[in-house]
Design a protein around this nucleic acid. Structure first.
Lengths: 345, 345
DNA sequence: AGTTGTAGTCGATACGCTTCAACGATACGT
DNA sequence: ACGTATCGTTGAAGCGTATCGACTACAACT
């Protein structure tokens, strides 16, 4: 492996000049810069990461702490991971994977070893145990998820409250007076992963404000109980029911059930899907979709972290960034027939 | 951050002694070792990764190259990623994420910068473009997947050929003369991701050997075409049809369809599921399952890589390791009624 | 003319660790 | 008693980079 010394020799300059060419921290004449760059090219020189980290006290690596709990859908996590890695690269950083099963020790380890200059924590819980540790970690940390007490922390997440609100506004706008939210996993309701609660909170507030009566049913992939819910909603809504669900299976079933009962989604009934949007969901023609935009959340998380990392001042107050959901009307909501994507403000 | 010099001062020894205590590369007396360990504990000393890498020329990091292509189910990839990260930690290594979209440049970069001492490549294709680059990379590399020409390479994967064979053996053993394989994504058949072909190859060979007539249908989540397939199989098999599928949706549908036609899986018919086994699949009581064991593959990949990394000799011939599928009979196959897990030899 | 400033380069040092050669001390064999 | 291994420890020499201070040359002001 060639070193910067080899490059210097070949270019006929000192080693420090090579360094300044690479970092651009001192002015270098056009002439010598070209000579050095040619030498770098010719030797395919790449700066040794360890040496660079040692001397500069920056590793150019961000640590990504991933959850291992079976609570969460692996595919969704992977979407975050992939986008975070790709975004980090765009800013000349790499990503080190840290699994949750190492717990707080893992955080202290990677920071203590100076393996990375900053951390992104996924799947942050309302009363996350990692928070006290993070507070005195000494490197910038970005949370994906919103804990109860986020003062002084840097948090980012999809705006689930706004999503809930939007769902109800969609309903009300289409003339519904009655809606059913169906399909959040019961385990998650009221759990330490508070995004479901944030969603329900937003939905309930909007329902009260707009005079929509809202019912909430836990998840079930059982067709009969879904049908029962449909029936009761039809009865209560005088034949104009509206449904919201994060569950792909439920979303697939609903239009069929409605058709069988002589109702047509987009005319007499509304079906709204919420969540990360896999391909399967895009196939649901009769469903209005609220995309939670995980990739946008990931991207902003990286950008926020990098901003914190380059800030000389130790971070002041903390940050709270909520990414608004992206609404796509696709025949799903009564009264809307144009399948054009449309961003929520 | 305390350094090893601080530890040495506190323990009253030289800095090199601290190093030898950490690495164990020289004998140290019980007495001073305890003193040093106490000092380490007291200062919560952690060796600086960059300095260590620089001096020892080992980063204790393995690079994991993940595919970004939408071809592959993100959840499956994540399972590999999580297990690889966890296994690496068990052997005191960390994992650096490298996305495929950097291409060959990415491989050369992380190795050139000496960010990692070895690589695991996922999603290896039959004629993978990365192979020529890997051959002269200078660090050990383990492939997950089997390219056409694997000479001199270290490959590991689930034994899909054996899985195909086992499926047909299950059928034949249960007295079926007729089977349908249904549900591989058509895009993947004959594609550069050759595991589907390996599976079909094994299945066809076994079918010929055992006198089973085998049909192959591409994936479809459309209920009608599945029903048609069922009908034709019933007709051809004199009322004893057998089915194999990697698709959860298909596997959920099949028992229902069979029941409607008066056939009971486990008695008159057989349903066999193949693939990585998500929770949803475990709920399929009437299905025999061939688990492809992604986590075992991942684990062995890490162990193989670490073995290669510690071997002083540059790796000789290469390795080809196939992980046999794990068969679980669960009322799925006609003639078997005991739901006991059972390993394939 | 002298002073000040700036662009461009170099030499030397520090970063925190591993590792080698070398040393004293202790045990062993004859 | 002597040489000869072995154990336990040390000091010093790197590993490859970033960065600081210093130096030169030359332009731009007084």
């Amino acid at each position: 492996m060639p070193t910067s010394k080899d490059v210097a020799a070949l270019a006929g300059v000192s080693q420090s000049t090579v360094s300044y060419v690479m970092t651009g921290k001192r002015p270098i004449s056009e002439k010598t810069r070209l000579r050095v760059e040619a030498a770098i090219e010719q030797l395919t020189y790449r700066p040794n990461a360890g040496a660079r980290a040692l001397a500069s006290r920056k590793s150019q690596v961000i640590g990504l702490v991933i959850p291992i709990t079976p609570e969460v859908h692996l595919g969704s996590i992977m979407e975050f991971v992939a986008v975070i890695a790709a975004t980090a690269r765009r800013f000349d950083h790499d990503v080190l994977l840290v699994t949750d099963q190492e717990g707080n020790q893992g955080l202290e380890r990677v920071v203590g070893q100076q393996l990375c200059d900053g951390l992104i924590l996924m799947q942050v819980q309302a009363d996350d145990e990692r928070i006290p540790v993070v507070r005195k970690l000494g490197v910038p940390v970005v949370f994906i998820g919103i804990p109860n007490d986020s003062t002084g922390l840097n948090c980012i997440d999809a705006d689930f409250a706004r999503a809930g609100e939007l769902c109800v506004e969609e309903m009300a706008g289409a003339g519904h007076t009655n809606g059913v939210i169906i399909g959040w996993r019961p385990r998650l309701v009221g759990s330490r992963l508070n995004y479901v609660d944030r969603f329900l909170g937003g939905a309930n507030a909007a329902a009260e404000r707009l005079g929509v009566s809202l019912e909430h049913l836990p998840a079930t992939s059982d067709r009969r109980s879904i049908e029962a819910a449909v029936d009761s909603c039809i009865a209560a809504s005088q034949g104009m029911p509206a449904f919201v669900s994060p569950d792909v299976t439920v979303l697939e079933l609903l239009p069929r059930i409605l058709h069988e009962k002589g109702l047509e989604p987009g005319r007499d009934a509304s079906v709204i899907g919420v969540g990360p949007v896999p391909d399967t969901m895009l196939a649901l023609e009769e469903t209005t979709i609220l995309d939670i935009q995980p990739s946008l959340v990931s991207q902003h998380a990286v950008e926020l972290l990098l901003r914190l990392m380059t800030a000389d001042h130790p971070d002041a107050g903390g940050t709270l960034e909520l990414i608004p959901p992206l609404v796509t009307h696709r025949h799903g909501t009564a009264g809307h027939s144009v399948p054009a994507p449309q961003s929520a403000s």
